[in-house]
Design a protein around this nucleic acid. Sequence first.
DNA 1: AATGGCCCCAACCGCCGTTTC
DNA 2: AGAAACGGCGGTTGGGGCCAT
Length: 245
Amino acid sequence: MDCKKEGALRRGPWLEEEDARLVKFVTLMGEHRWDSLARVSGLKRNGKSCRLRWINYLNPSLKRGPMSKEEEIIIFQLHALWGNKWSKIARRLPGRTDNEIKNYWRTHLRKKVEAQNNDKIIDWRGNKGEEMLRKYKESEITWTRTTTREHGFEETVKEDKQINMESDKETNGLICEREHFGVMNSPYENRIFDWIFKTSIDQSDANILEDHSSSSSDNSINSNDGSWWFQETIDFEEFPCSLWS
DNA sequence: AATGGCCCCAACCGCCGTTTC
DNA sequence: AGAAACGGCGGTTGGGGCCAT
């Protein structure tokens, strides 16, 4: 691609000088037009690489250090709801990037989920593992109870999770159940389900779970259950999670 | 001390949607 | 309206560090 034309483009780990130069030019030019920024700055990197370096490493708003228990819980639960929607999950966690969350999930949480499921991935297609679901539900409720009020969603979380857990088997259909087992969707499946979701629901605050049901005609989850989890806010800064303040 | 295996994470890749011209 | 450029996303990889043997 660009590399062919600009054979001197660097790859691999960033040097300190490159970081310093990138920070300088992002400060000057802002966080957009990455290709031109890369060109103007004289960095031998493509725009994408610059953007990624900034977003995942240099951005001063990034939080450093290990994930807190609370963050872990949030990731765990949001992943159970949304699957591998890392950027979406990242928007709920200030100072954390999608890449970081993705890595964290792969190296930490996934193991926990699998361990919880008796060290085996459940074949959701075979629709087995009733007892696994029950176990997961139990542990899920425990998790929600540890969520602190500090985040401002303790009560709703607890209620919603219970409501959803009770109803997911019959209302949520395969995708939710699979995700609760920690089983990934393929990108194609995700897109198809996203599409179905978008076309079947015209309000952004619709409940995410009900659309996955093939028989969701009238057994949808109560719309006034206050399930903020399922409401993808347009602007995440509006999200009343105090982690962002 | 050497080394092989595993873990972690930064960086890259390919695809797709959006914006710009 | 359509092509090109840009930006964002999720998946994957490579290499450094750690640890057990």
